[in-house]
Structures are given as C-alpha cells and as structure tokens.
C-alpha cells in the first residue's frame, strides 16, 4: 500500500449561508486523480482550499504531513497550483514570469532557479518562446505557462483547475502527455468536466456534486456504476423526441432514417434497444443522476 500524501478530514467550506462544500474525507495517493463534477459542484472551492488560497471552514488538510493552517508555509512549499482563471502579466516574458514565480516559491539561488525555469519551460514546450512577452502568447501557451509555474520546484502535490478549458485538441493532447510524464510518486489532482481528459490520463476519479463527494474509485469502477443500464436504440424522429422527454439520453447520433440513441435506464427503454458496454461518461452520468428512470 502506497503512503497517503494528501489527506482531507471533515473539510467543509461555507460562504456566509451557502454551504459550498459539505464535510469531506478524502485521501489522495500518488498518481493522477481526476475531479469531476458539473458547474457549481464545489470543485473550485475544494481546489482553492487545497491550494491554501482559502481556509476550510471546518476540518483539516494535511499535505505531505503538514497541516495547511498551522504549517501553511511548509504545506505550500509542497504544492503547485494552477487556478482556473488567471491573467498572467502581459508585460513580462514567459521566462521573467517563471523566474518571479520561482522566487516567490522560495527558489532563491539564481543558478538553481534558472535551471529549474529552463526545465519547466522545456517540459511545457515553451523554451523557444520564453523570451517573448506573454501578451503575445496564444491561449494555449498561456495555459502551458500557468502549468509550468505550478510545476516549478517539482512539487509532490499539483493541483490543476480546468487546465484544458479553451485549449484546442492538439494543446489538450500536449497537456495530457505532459501529465503522463509526471513521476509516479507525485500526486496530481486534475479538475475538469471534460471526461475524455480523465479517461486519457487519470488513474482514479472523484466525483463531486452539490458540494458532496458522490464517488471515488478507479475509472473502471466509475464506468461500472452504469453497468447493465446502458442501452442503445435506433428509433425514428418521433420516438426520439419522446425518449428525450421521458428518458435519460446520454448521446444521440442522427442517421439517414432516424436517430441512434444511447440511454441510461433500469429497464429496456424502447423496443429493439440493446444493452451496451458502459463508458466512463455513462458511469459519471449515472453517479450524478443517482436513480435512473
């Protein structure tokens, strides 16, 4: 059994009267953990709390054994964080920004800092554009720079909040490859609502919904949540409309003579429907919906 590096015990967060995060117990182990959840599920709240940007209202978080409140500085030195929305200063070059971030993360010695900056620049494939001003970067390059600053110092725990939002497919693939290169003894928590990103890189997945932990397990276990309840049916357009209204349709593909639908249901939703192997997305939807009609 691998040692637990990040531990959340009864962590909850309340904003005035709104309970954004209900008490949560969670252990994160080395590897890449995907955090899934719809908008407003509490993902960003959880990540901000883990990144020490805010204090939990209740409970405690330990990163590499350091409590984030009583030993915040030590906990932060083991942390890399990329927030969801950050506008990096456009007047700086990518390299200047990383030097700055490295200094602020405690890399004081200039030579070591320079080496580390060049390492992460190479890691995110930005070395050839590192001397350009950030304002001239594409959205994907800015995202990569944000990721690079999180990787500075090779922290044991890295948190990425929606890192692939707004990236084109090739940039997303590049990001996935980058994550895969992380060594096995590091913990990465990746928040996204793009299921394919999770499928591509994560070893484990956590599903949050309405501030509560709904699922935690491997990708196969999440897919298995929908086992035996995934159906595919070829129907005409009138039937399709009726199924959309009455059943939980996961996907629909238009065909020459009608539509092919993928549904989640406890019983056969339509004549001619046949069961299908569940995917991660099916499992995710099944977890979110709980009871299936």
């Amino acid at each position: 059994m691998q040692p637990t590096l990040v531990e959340l015990a009864g962590v909850a967060k309340t904003y005035r009267r709104k309970q954004a995060l209900h008490p949560l117990d969670l252990e994160l182990r080395p590897g890449i953990t995907g955090l899934l959840g719809p908008n407003g599920a509490g993902k960003t709240t959880l990540l901000s709390t883990l990144a020490t940007v805010q204090r939990p209202s209740r409970g405690a978080i330990r990163i590499c054994g350091w409590d984030t409140v009583s030993h915040g500085r030590e906990a932060r030195s083991a942390l890399g964080y990329m927030p969801q929305r950050v506008e990096l200063p456009g007047q700086l070059t990518g390299r200047e920004f990383l030097h700055y971030a490295a200094s602020m993360k405690g890399l004081a010695e200039p030579k070591a800092r320079g080496t580390e900056v060049e390492r992460v620049l190479a890691e995110v494939n930005l070395a050839d554009r590192a001397g350009d001003r950030i304002r001239g970067y594409s959205g994907g390059m800015k995202q990569r720079l944000g990721i690079a600053q999180a990787l500075l110092g090779d922290p044991p725990f890295a948190v990425f909040d929606e890192p692939t939002a707004g990236l084109d497919p090739s940039e997303r693939i590049r990001f996935r490859n980058l994550l895969r290169r992380r060594t096995a003894d590091r913990i990465v928590l990746l928040s996204t609502h793009i299921v394919s990103d999770i499928e591509a890189v994560c070893d484990e997945v956590v599903v949050l919904h309405e501030g509560r932990l709904r699922f935690r397990g491997s990708l196969e276990e999440l897919a298995a949540e929908a086992a035996g309840r995934v159906w595919e049916a070829e129907v005409d357009e009138d039937q399709a409309d009726a199924l959309y209204a009455e059943r939980l349709v996961i996907a629909g593909v238009r065909q020459d003579t009608g539509m092919r639908l993928r549904l989640l249901a406890d019983d056969r939703p339509a004549a001619g429907a046949r069961t299908a192997a569940p995917t991660l997305e099916d499992g995710y939807v099944a977890v979110l919906k709980g009871t299936v009609r």
């Binding site: 990329m82 602020m104 405690g106």
Partner: peptide
C-alpha cells in the same frame, strides 16, 4: 490567488 498558493510570506 496564484500568489496565495506560493510559499512567499
């Protein structure tokens, strides 16, 4: 938010 996650005091 980013800076708050850095170890700078």
């Amino acid at each position: 938010r980013l800076a708050l996650s850095w170890s700078v005091a």
